[in-house]
Simulated assay, not measured.
Amino acid sequence: MPTRSGSARYEGLGKDGKGWVSTQSGVLKDQQYGFNTRFEDGPGTNPEELIAAAHASCFTMALSFALAGAGYHDGTLETNAKVTIDKDGDGFTITSSKLDLDAKVPGIAADEFERIANEAKAGCPVSKLMTAEVTLTHRLSA
């Protein structure tokens, strides 16, 4: 399976710093982020917005494949994810990712749809990431 990557650069430190985030595919290239985009209304993106987009897209695709696997061949799925970050002592914690789904799947019973949607939510790789092991390697230059 392929490994995907993203990168971030931050110049300056703390509130006065400015950052840029990019993706391997180039869909995002040097998009601005920083304190003002994360905790205020500054132009640019932030980690929680990117996680929300990743979770919404991953879940929606997982549900699409699960429905196709159950024999359904037509439908429209639209998911909005809201990721919340809250103060946690001296730092912050992402406390929730709330998926809100609008679906049209002709011929499916409500209870079957609910079961398949909940299985897709649990099985989506980004949902699983929320409790995944995180590792770090580092180098420090003088």
Results as ranks from 00 to 15, higher is better:
50 L>K: 08
21 V>A: 14
50 L>V: 10
50 L>I: 11
54 A>I: 09
41 D>M: 04
35 F>M: 01
30 D>N: 15
36 N>P: 00
30 D>M: 04
35 F>P: 02
58 C>T: 01
34 G>Y: 09
52 A>V: 10
46 N>P: 14
42 G>R: 06
39 F>M: 13
36 N>E: 15
53 A>H: 06
33 Y>Q: 02
36 N>H: 14
37 T>K: 04
30 D>H: 11
23 T>P: 02
45 T>K: 08
50 L>R: 06
48 E>L: 05
40 E>R: 11
42 G>K: 03
57 S>I: 03
30 D>C: 01
22 S>E: 08
32 Q>F: 13
29 K>A: 11
25 S>M: 09
43 P>Y: 01
62 A>L: 03
48 E>M: 07
44 G>P: 13
52 A>K: 05
60 T>W: 00
35 F>G: 04
39 F>N: 07
43 P>H: 09
29 K>F: 01
51 I>N: 07
61 M>W: 05
38 R>I: 10
48 E>R: 00
28 L>S: 03
58 C>A: 08
38 R>Q: 10
32 Q>C: 01
27 V>H: 10
23 T>N: 12
24 Q>V: 02
28 L>K: 02
23 T>H: 04
43 P>E: 12
55 H>L: 02
40 E>W: 04
47 P>D: 03
34 G>C: 09
28 L>R: 08
50 L>Y: 05
52 A>N: 10
58 C>Y: 09
43 P>T: 08
53 A>G: 13
42 G>Y: 09
24 Q>I: 01
40 E>L: 15
24 Q>L: 09
36 N>F: 08
44 G>L: 09
35 F>H: 15
41 D>P: 00
